[in-house]
Amino acid sequence: MNPQLDKAGKLRHFLTTEFLPKEILLQILDTAESFTRVTKRNVKKVPLLRGKTLFNLFFEASTRTRTTFEIAAKRLSADVVNINISTSAQSKGESLLDTIANLSAMHADMFVVRHARSGAPFFIAKHVAPHIHVINAGDGSHAHPTQALLDMYTIRHFKKKFDGLRVAIVGDITNSRVARSQIHALNILGVSEVRVIAPKTLLPVAIERLGVSVFYDIRLGLKDVDVVIMLRLQRERMRGINLPSSQEFFNTYGLTIDKLSVAKHDVIVMHPGPINRGVEIDSSVADGNSSVILPQVTFGIAVRMAVMSILAGHSI
């Protein structure tokens, strides 16, 4: 059974895009669209989560994701508590379950969880009281479903549809929770092809079983694509047993105007950020006409508002 859904098939937690029905993904995108109008108003708040308390539980450092969740929750009139757990209870030896039990006792309604361990939000969701909703804000290399949904929102915003699209994801797939969530979402929403482009050292085994075609040569992989998603290469992985150097990676897989020229003329370039200029993407592309990297960030707030309000039982 999918632990994200209740018995009626409604979203109870938002933990991964995998195995979710297409209707739920579209419901999130449609709800987000109505919230983008809110975010453009002078008075940006709506009272959907008034009286509810949301805990941002970040077991792994993050500024941007945490901030967008905080803004999203505040625009829905929720009370927000930010807890940076890497410097708090866990370092004093408290178990994850005890931490969760204590926070639940403070009458939490929603937990937004980021954790370095794949599956940790599932573990938390399994142990919270029935009224508490858990949102995965990134777990290990497993999933980052709100990031993937804001990427889907961005694609739909610029391309108006999913069918017929060719999407290429470039970079460190092995360690990317974003890539996994994107691959599932793109396939559920019905794009015509998802490609992954990387050297074999950055591709996990059996990745094709997730519904992607694999390319080792970026010039072949980018041919005729509508969307390019560049992944961030973690600094600690730029040199070592996966890659010899960031320079060699940029030369072979870094996105430049030249490499991008084989894509469709109206291609859009996305990046979940923060970007490493000159490592996975050249500034001329990041700041160029095809780039939609900044709109992605803006849409992130509306998408997170949508997920929270749907979990709380409101959809628009």
Partner: peptide, 15 residues
Amino acid sequence: HEGEVATRLGLSGIP
């Protein structure tokens, strides 16, 4: 086990 399940779950595998 290193395989499709490990890849889906984002876990490092024992090949």
